[in-house]
Amino acid sequence: MKRFVEALRQSRMLLAGVVLVSAFTVIGALAPWVAPYSPSAISGDTFERPSRAHLLGTNDAGADIFSRLVWGTRTTLVVAVCATALILAVGMALGLTAGLRGGLADTVVMRIADVFLALPVIPLLIFIAALAGPSLTLSILMIGLFTWPQTARIVRSQTLSLRQRGFVDIARGLGGGPLYVMRRHLIPALGPVIGANLVFVAGVAVTTEAAMSFLGLGDPSAVSWGAELNRALQNDQITLGSLWLWWMVPFGLALTVAILGFTLIGVALEPRFNPRWSRAQT
């Protein structure tokens, strides 16, 4: 934590990223209080222009666009948090197993990771969502299922290098069980590297969910930025007048800024926590 505050003070990029992501987190958490209307309620005529009552006008169903924008933040956050947690769990479990057990377990896990890494994720997600019927849970599960290999690889290589340093052997020699060594020695040492990786993963999860719902394969009942962008694009009225200015642009901007936030944090953290960095400096 102290290291993080230090880093925050040193890098403006990190600070900007953290501010952006925190802002979205607050807006998402407080959605019911920030949004003036329910996102699905018919709160006005269809296609109203922006006014004091409707900051960004209303959409084709007469729902308040600003409220949908605010509630969409929540969907984005839910996906980011759940998918990242899932990837963390799977990636840690498999990466630690491969790194600690070595031998056959290592080979098997890493070969499976190779195959998963080579699979084209977006077509697979589209295929599965088209067959199974889209839902938010499915999106999260699928994103987790296809994004873990990168995290697992990082955990494994870090574990391997930590094992070389002796303190793991000493702890084992003094009678520490594998779970104890993992909890007490490995996970704290792995923390920063995995933290930096997870920020990237969260960004990937947000992008993937947005792309899926933009393609019409997200949860039809969830209010999502990607889905609203698609809804606007599919509507004939979008080509007339300046409706796109307040119906499409805000959702595109929100997504851009959110992804930018994750990218900034990732770019700023990487050289600090990436073991490759020390090598690159010499």
Binding site: G203, T207, A211, L229, N230, F262, T263
Partner: peptide, 9 residues
């Protein structure tokens, strides 16, 4: 990391 569909749309 910006997805292509925002600019595309």
């Amino acid at each position: 990391n910006l997805p292509i569909f925002i600019l595309g749309a």
